[in-house]
Nucleic acid binder design. Sequence first.
DNA 1: CGGTATCCTCGAGGATACTG
DNA 2: CAGTATCCTCGAGGATACCG
Lengths: 137, 137
Amino acid sequence: MNTKPASVRSKLDFYRLARDEGVHLENCPVREVIANIGGKWNSLLMLALAEQPYRFGALRRLVPDISQRMLTQTLRDLQRDGYVHRAVFPTKPPSVEYSLTELGRSMFDPLQALVKWAEQHHDAVRAARARFDRDES
Amino acid sequence: MNTKPASVRSKLDFYRLARDEGVHLENCPVREVIANIGGKWNSLLMLALAEQPYRFGALRRLVPDISQRMLTQTLRDLQRDGYVHRAVFPTKPPSVEYSLTELGRSMFDPLQALVKWAEQHHDAVRAARARFDRDES
DNA sequence: CGGTATCCTCGAGGATACTG
DNA sequence: CAGTATCCTCGAGGATACCG
């Protein structure tokens, strides 16, 4: 049965386990989360909603280069995974407010750490990139 | 000129500044980094190489469901951004060892935080997902 | 062993128009 | 205001074959 020892050794095992047991490692827990910050707009919207709750239109203005379609869809994805709460107020015309849930806030912490790293090291990355591009020319 | 105050207020400003000044926010520092963990294999390979250095073939065996093409390409992307070092040993046949650079290790720290979060909360995410799918049916 | 080169698929994401 | 609905593009990523 190719059985694994009960103790999970390395971080990689989370991927490996998923591969061994799942259809196509679609149910790998790490991938599930990483996929949701990897999208083009997911992390950006998390960043925005971590600031404060926003209404749909406000988010559009905050991020003018997102298409309406992707805004709707990304918000629904985030809501589906429990990161975002969607509150509908029956005003006329209706207004909808999006906010982070507790789960969303807790996942925002490590996400923010990554963002801070990016802010602090993006020049090093750009330098490395320039060096690489020059050397291989 | 729609000039911004010198002080950057919120995290979102890193996106906003990129949008205002760049062609299409391709040069946004946050996006640069996030894009490199967002790929299908990037974070997985970072995870593997954080464990220990690996040779090309060893990485293939570690992650059997990656295509050779994507392994090569993802490694080159990571190398280009300065996360990964590629050491060629002129043995016969040649062997190539990939390892994390200092920059790579420093970016692995926040990445690992995210992975840990995923390990700890993936059941909450799955529950939220199931609830959402049931309620909207 | 550690890659390139080629071809192909498929889905993320954009543009535009319409709606309760 | 806050979305759907439709159509379309384009590039990430897979499969296969070849190479020094």
